[in-house]
Simulated scan of single mutants.
Amino acid sequence: MYRFILSGMCLLMISAGFSQESEMAAIEGGAYIPLYGNDSLPVSVENFKIDKYPVTNRDYQKFLLENPKWKKSEVRALFADGRYLAHWQDDSHLKPDELEDAPVTNVSWFAARAYCKWRGKRLPSLDEWEYVAMADKVSADARKKDGYNEFILSWYERPKSFHQKVGSTYKNYWGVYDMHGMVWEWTSDFNSVIISGETRRDENQDNNLFCGSAAIGSSDLMNYAAFMRYAFRSSVKGNYSIRNLGFRCAQDSNEKENSANEAL
């Protein structure tokens, strides 16, 4: 896509396109039983679209150019803590050893939500993200397969997995990359589950989020990989900026993307 700018008597055409992170995969909705369900009842997920790749440093840089209030020197502490964009050397440039095509991290939930809104999208819900994340290369729900959870858990143990280009991990059943093996990801309702409670929507308890007893609320006590994700989400706040926490955007299936990469 291109953007046209009138400068004097000349019409200038400059590239306004995004990298591959703007590509979206269409997800066919259905029902699934989440790790924390209401008495393990299925949860319905409507048809939707999700980015094939996490948002990169390069794409986030474009967002900052058009939305200066989200630059690290300008952002309000209410919306991002002191670690916001800590891997950037200034408002516009990454540190020398950082990759432009790596997933952007050190970004708060508020900033991630603002980016998606700017792109004419939104953050995926927790259920949407988990629904897509169930898939391996060949099946929509691989959670019961031998080795699936072990693979995910092995990633959780690897240091600096964020320091790689998006698309470096496998493409799953839906055509989506990097759901596992790269970074944790924000969801729109990341804090809707307190894992120490008895149901997935219990927000009235604030116990030790990583204690073993919290797994009692799980619909699958062997699914420790998903348990770790829910525990992580329960432990963060909206203004937190974390080195291995990034995001991707989603969209309702009937919505058309209205983003900065469309011609003016």
Rank of each mutant, 00 (worst) to 15 (best):
R3I: 05
F4E: 11
F4R: 14
G8V: 01
M9V: 03
C10K: 13
C10T: 12
I14C: 06
I14E: 15
S15I: 00
A16E: 11
F18V: 01
E28V: 02
E28L: 03
G29Y: 09
G30F: 07
N38K: 14
L41E: 15
L41D: 10
V45P: 08
F48H: 15
K49Q: 12
K49N: 03
K52M: 11
K52L: 04
Q61V: 00
K62S: 07
F63E: 11
N67P: 08
P68D: 05
E74M: 10
R76M: 04
F79T: 03
R83T: 06
Y84S: 09
A86H: 10
W88I: 02
L94C: 13
D97I: 00
L99K: 15
D101W: 03
A102C: 03
P103L: 01
V104D: 08
V107M: 09
W109S: 07
A111R: 14
G120Q: 08
K121Y: 04
K121V: 00
P124F: 03
S125K: 10
S125R: 14
D127K: 06
V132G: 04
M134L: 12
A135M: 08
K145Y: 11
D146C: 00
I152G: 01
I152P: 02
W155L: 05
W155C: 09
E157N: 09
F162Y: 11
W174Q: 02
G175P: 11
D178T: 07
D178Y: 09
M179V: 13
M179R: 14
M179T: 13
G181F: 06
V183I: 09
E185C: 10
S188I: 02
D189V: 01
F190R: 10
F190V: 05
N191T: 01
N191Y: 11
V193Y: 12
E198D: 11
D206F: 06
N207Q: 10
L209D: 06
S213I: 02
G217A: 08
G217C: 08
G217F: 07
L221R: 14
L221S: 10
A226M: 05
A226F: 09
R229Y: 05
Y230M: 04
A231V: 02
F232V: 03
V236Y: 06
V236W: 09
N239S: 06
I242C: 05
C249L: 05
C249H: 13
D252W: 05
S253D: 13
S259C: 06
A260G: 01
N261K: 12
N261R: 08
E262A: 02
